[in-house]
Write a protein that binds this DNA or RNA. Structure first.
Lengths: 149, 149
DNA sequence: CCAATTAGTTGTCAATTGATAATTATTAAT
DNA sequence: ATTAATAATTATCAATTGACAACTAATTGG
């Protein structure tokens, strides 16, 4: 692998991070901590997920994942339900209120994003979509989750 | 802007985050905390930067940025130097040892990354590079830094 | 020259987060 | 039928991080 491509990717990831930071500046949910927000975001895009899976992907210990998830449940932003086939597992989903919170958050991100790409022509937008799909497939595809749905 | 593209971008950003998480699993620097690592990563790709700029981009308060930066300086991973033209400003750079730590970290990320894209053909790698450059330019371009170099 | 602003620092306290050990309940293995 | 492994929980303590007030030093603008 050429070092140049690697540099490019590292720089790109850093930029995506930074851009995401910029985009979510406007969000600031008061009701949840940063870690809790990350969890909600992850659940939102991957639900239903198990606690173990969150723990793995977000690199948090099981005890801490469990604790934060309990807090989110207490805030009624998500619910756990036992897997009927393996009652040790809990499948986690957002509640209606959790969904609506995340939809708001995403809407606010969307607004900032619109400002960034509002200038682009239809052709350019298509190029962007194609580029994302390519990267999605070839570089940033995530390891198959062990979720069942 | 089409909602579909927005969805795609949000999902993409989430995936990049997750992939970056995966990639940096192997890194685990013992000497620095997570926030300090993020700061080092940011300094590495943006140096030289001012304290204010770090504070802005990483969304940390000035006092906290200053404190963590002091710790990094104490660990001799970065240095501050006064701007000769405006002695209120401090330009921050990695030290040789900071550079080498981050090079190691990046090398370890590179190894994981190689595993992901090792299978790709030369043509595909070129497509990937082109896609990244496109997104870089049209979507994730970051607001001009106020850094001088 | 004198306020006002800007860049950064120090100290302190509370909240969040990380780490570990011990425990329950369920399932898989022998 | 036990034993081992898995999924998750609870409790506890330390470390990190966030927030705020008060401060110094340098610069800008009248």
């Amino acid at each position: 692998m050429q070092p140049a491509l690697f540099q490019l990717i590292v720089q790109f990831v850093a930029n995506v991070h930074q851009a995401a930071n910029e985009l979510s500046k406007a969000v600031q949910l008061e009701e949840v901590t940063p870690v809790q927000y990350k969890m909600l975001e992850f659940i939102k895009v991957s639900q239903p997920v198990t606690l173990s899976h969150i723990s793995d992907c977000l690199q948090m210990s099981m005890p801490n994942t469990s604790r934060e998830l309990r807090k989110l449940s207490e805030k009624e932003l998500c619910v756990k339900s036992f897997d009927p086939e393996d009652r040790r597992k809990q499948w986690i989903r957002l509640t209606a209120s959790g969904e609506s919170m995340m939809n708001n958050a995403f809407a606010s991100i969307e607004a900032s994003l619109a400002a960034r790409i509002g200038e682009l022509s239809v052709d350019e937008l298509e190029e962007v979509a194609a580029a994302i799909e390519l990267l999605q497939a070839k570089v940033f595809a995530n390891p198959p989750s062990n979720r069942k749905d």
